[in-house]
Design a protein around this nucleic acid. Sequence first.
DNA 1: CAGAATCCACCAGGATACTG
DNA 2: CAGTATCCTGGTGGATTCTG
Lengths: 140, 140
Amino acid sequence: MYERKTPLSIDCGLHLTREVLNGKWKPALLYAISMDIKRPSEILRLLPGVTRRVLNVQLKELETHGMVEKKTYPQLPPKVEYSLTEIGRSLIPVIDAMNQWGDANRSFLETVIAQDPKIGETSKSICLKYGHMLVERKIG
Amino acid sequence: MYERKTPLSIDCGLHLTREVLNGKWKPALLYAISMDIKRPSEILRLLPGVTRRVLNVQLKELETHGMVEKKTYPQLPPKVEYSLTEIGRSLIPVIDAMNQWGDANRSFLETVIAQDPKIGETSKSICLKYGHMLVERKIG
DNA sequence: CAGAATCCACCAGGATACTG
DNA sequence: CAGTATCCTGGTGGATTCTG
């Protein structure tokens, strides 16, 4: 009577994805790592807003959720590198879609969200930082 | 020297999108409305987890962010209908991507998130509800 | 450079009850 | 059916400090 026997849920997936991406910096972290910005110090430089502690916490969550892998080099000074897992990599297109939508509607969104002082500063500085990185990466 | 003069930020868009989608039920709400489940009572029936108050709050935010429009019919009993705006509609593909990714990796994600008792019940009941809706909508 | 331990403030979101 | 007012708490994420 209806096309699919198991009426694939409409919302479950949404909730699961939300769960994985739940955390102020998670999408950005995944995105950064996907760009080979894989060392904590690099990430901290990239995202002026995030704290060491929060960075660790959220990376840890991404790790336990199987989105990223952590490689620790027992050196001095210590060195740590994160990389996307298979499934983590499969999330990038989604994050990319989010990013592109936000970019495409930036002016409108900035206006509309203007009242909300939350992200204003943060996101702007991040923009600059990222722009910088882009240049560096393109040139280097 | 580098391909684009204005090195389109990588993260701004992400933050803006996060801002709009920030709220436990926002993606689901947009999704529901996109499916013509537009009346508050319908939505409440659909999402067993959400409260009247929270529903109102988040719908209000979506409204002030320009994602949805609210139409009030001054009747008795009162009748209210929400609809997506142009830009709100443009967000659906993104939400759809989130949803599909979650669905595609459901078994893995459920396992991995299992420790986290947060959503367990909620998302399951939502699945059922939604499945139901699908059937109803396909048949009706 | 990486990261663990505390401490804390804030707010999102849930429960409840009441009005039109 | 829709909406509002209170109240309350759990968790997120920020600041700080200290180790290897």
